[in-house]
Amino acid sequence: MTLTVHVDEFACAAHGDCAIAAPGVFTIDDIAVVTGEGSDEAILAAARACPAGAITVTDASTGEPVYP
């Protein structure tokens, strides 16, 4: 499935855990920014790792929430 990743810019505190879990997907600027693509597993691991709960993941084709 193709996933769409969204970072809540108000919740994100740039902890950087997402960029460790999914280094090709997230880059840390003043907040985490989605700058690339990665496996579904890596993206979901990044979303779960976020201490601020700032990452949401949806199915790109259906728009259904995948995480949380």
Binding site: D8, A11, R48, C50, A52, G53, A54, T56, Y67, P68
Partner: peptide, 9 residues
Amino acid sequence: RPHALAEVR
């Protein structure tokens, strides 16, 4: 419950 944080916030 990391998935519940956004809702709690």
